[in-house]
């Protein structure tokens, strides 16, 4: 059997619906159509009345889910694309994220964001929004890079008593396959060593894990052993695993597909320099997408985002220092 990242997301939702009668799915075209990407394929028929088409009203989708949690429900929301969640930012960041702190009543919603760039996606169907949500106190932000994580972290997200922003990468939907779904996996909040090495550490997440792995293959041919940390969860960030890796290698490159200002790379570098300055043999580096909207044309898109070649070249600079 072979299962894709997208099928894992479907399977996790299937299981969540089966195991907990309070789970329901709400989003545009998620019903009998099965969603724009088919992440809810067959679920409406299997769970009548619990997989519901929403009007094009992202604000009201999230607002109503927040309300439903107070009655014991555990909604999963699908944004058609992560980019459209900007319309619901008020509800996610001001309503959901503050509720527990303001009232002591948790707000267990899961908001699925089909994230990240693909060829021809353009500026409004390609964004990586994890850092924006991570900025807000009260949210959990997950960025699975593997089929196994897509499955186990989504299942866990539904059980978490806080609002979870689940950033699933569209580029991985069909590209990534696994033999089977995991019974057990690392919990949310723990990073994973995706590849061991001793000369430099790359800290990354989501689709960039795979670009970094390819860059590490290239550098291996040049005699370098690169360690890759897959953060898995952006908030909370597993600083311990990152610091332990930097302690082994002395060098740090952070890679993210998001825009360069602030963000996950800046956060990781800030933590490593303040908590592990003595571990560093070279100034830490970061590689992000460029500081422009995401271009439509594949020629531009490929140059806009980090990729194995640019990661390899940043690593060479880092190793040369």
């Amino acid at each position: 059997m072979s299962i894709t990242y997208l099928e894992a997301i479907q399977a996790a939702q299937d299981r969540a619906l089966a195991e907990n009668e309070f789970v329901y799915i709400y989003g545009q075209d998620v019903g009998s159509f099965g969603g724009a990407f088919k992440a809810t394929k067959n679920l409406a028929a299997k769970y009548p009345g619990r997989v519901i088409d929403a009007p094009i009203s992202e604000d009201a989708m999230v607002g109503s889910a927040i309300g439903a949690t107070a009655e014991g429900m555990r909604p999963i929301l699908e944004m058609q694309f992560a980019d459209f969640s900007t319309i619901a930012i008020n509800q996610i960041c001001n309503q959901a994220a503050t509720q527990f702190w303001r009232t002591g009543i948790p707000c267990p919603i899961t908001v699925r964001l089909p994230s990240g760039g693909t060829e021809g996606g353009g500026p409004f169907h390609s964004q990586s929004m994890e850092a924006i949500y991570a900025q807000y106190p009260g949210l959990i932000v997950l960025t699975p890079a593997t089929v196994e994580d897509a499955y186990s972290m989504l299942l866990e997200a539904v059980t978490i008593d806080d609002p979870v922003v689940f950033c699933e990468h569209k580029y991985l939907y069909y590209h990534l396959k696994a033999d089977q779904l995991p019974d057990k996996n690392l919990p949310v909040g723990k990073a994973r060593i995706a590849r061991t090495g001793k000369h430099a550490t790359v800290v990354t997440y989501s689709a960039m894990v795979h670009e970094a792995l390819r860059a590490a293959d290239t550098l291996e041919e040049e005699g370098w052993e690169i360690e890759i940390v897959d953060l898995r969860s952006i908030k909370p960030i597993d600083t311990d695993t990152v610091l332990a890796s930097v302690a082994r290698t002395g060098r740090l490159l952070c890679v993210s597909e998001a825009f360069p200002w602030g963000g996950v790379n800046a956060e990781v570098i800030s933590r490593v320099t303040s908590e592990g300055f003595h571990l560093l043999d070279a100034p830490p580096k970061r590689l992000n997408a460029k500081d422009t909207p995401i271009p439509f044309h594949p020629n531009l898109w490929k140059a806009h985002r980090p990729a194995s070649q640019s990661i390899a070249s940043s690593l060479r600079d880092l190793l040369r220092y």
């Binding site: 271009p295 439509f296 594949p298 020629n299 531009l300």
Partner: peptide, 16 residues
Amino acid sequence: LGSIEGPMKAREGNVH
């Protein structure tokens, strides 16, 4: 068709 001569300079596509 993603021509650089287009009004959006191929930064944007299709109906955008």
